[in-house]
């Protein structure tokens, strides 16, 4: 009996950290109006999901939790090769914290009938907290393997290489399992023109919190952001120039002597 593989993947439309600017006077960053993009690691997650489907068959469902603009992340996931797209949204989406997002993903997981494998980026480009995947697995009471750099399917289980600070742990986990993946797992394909065109025509299924079993007021943030600011690090900004490389090098030696860093 061959069961079709059901793969879910979470994608986030997050703040583009390369384009955010702090207010010069206050150092504060206004995230409400900041430009957004699909989180980098989430594209790796979609790519890995699609590769597994290409090898083993089955379906890939991309799920995003967010506002209307998050459809862009779904479009990108579809262009990479996801089969279905689901947007979990409500008016209050911008207030949702990590807990709300993980609960909504867990709710969507249940509502959609469960998955064998559920892939999540190890951290989002903007928040980079690394909590959503394990938190969702905890909510669901299913296995998870975080920081995965390589995954293979063996029957109804995965063999996953978990990249830790000092070691690599090879872990076997039976389905269902949540995997969090980083950039090193693959290089996401650049979708073809046709794939992009097809993706932009596909409708996403839209779910509200009650559709996934959650009352909107149960999603009020428990971790409330008071402010986001860029710390001011004063740097001397001294340009060292000279007629030759050696002259410049001597200039640096003088400077570092004055700093007490070289004899």
């Amino acid at each position: 009996m061959a069961e079709t593989l059901r793969i879910g993947v979470a994608v986030k439309h997050g703040v583009d950290v390369t384009l955010t600017r702090a207010d010069r006077a206050t150092g504060r960053v206004d995230l409400a109006g900041a430009p957004r993009k699909t989180s980098d690691f989430d594209k790796n997650a979609v790519e890995e999901a699609v590769r597994l489907r290409e090898k083993h068959g089955g379906t890939v469902t991309a799920i995003t939790v967010g506002g209307p603009a998050a459809r862009e992340a779904l479009r990108e996931a579809l262009a990479i090769g996801a089969d279905e797209a689901v947007l979990v949204t409500a008016e209050s989406w911008s207030t949702w914290d990590t807990r709300a997002v993980a609960r909504l993903l867990a709710g969507a997981y249940r509502t959609l009938g469960g998955f064998d494998l559920f892939l999540v980026g190890e951290g989002s480009t903007d928040h980079f907290g690394g909590l959503v995947g394990p938190r969702m697995a905890g909510e669901l009471g299913i296995a998870e393997v975080a920081s995965v750099r390589k995954v293979t399917i063996e029957g109804r289980a995965v063999l996953a290489e978990k990249d830790l600070e000092k070691e690599v742990e090879v872990v076997r986990a039976k389905f269902p399992v949540v995997l969090t993946v980083g950039q090193e797992i693959n290089t996401p394909r650049l979708p073809t023109f046709m794939a992009n065109l097809k993706a932009s025509k596909k409708e996403a299924k839209v779910l509200a919190p009650p559709d996934v079993g959650l009352a909107p007021d149960s999603l009020a943030p428990v971790v409330v952001v008071e402010k986001v600011a860029v710390p001011e690090i004063p740097r001397k900004q001294v340009a060292l120039a000279g007629a030759s490389a050696e002259e410049i090098a001597k200039g640096l030696r003088e400077a570092l002597r004055a700093e007490g860093l070289v004899p």
Binding site: A22, T125, F128, V223, V224, V225, E226, V230
Partner: peptide
């Protein structure tokens, strides 16, 4: 926060 570019107070 913001890939370490900023500090969020929560």
């Amino acid at each position: 926060a913001l890939s370490g570019n900023a500090v969020a107070t929560e």
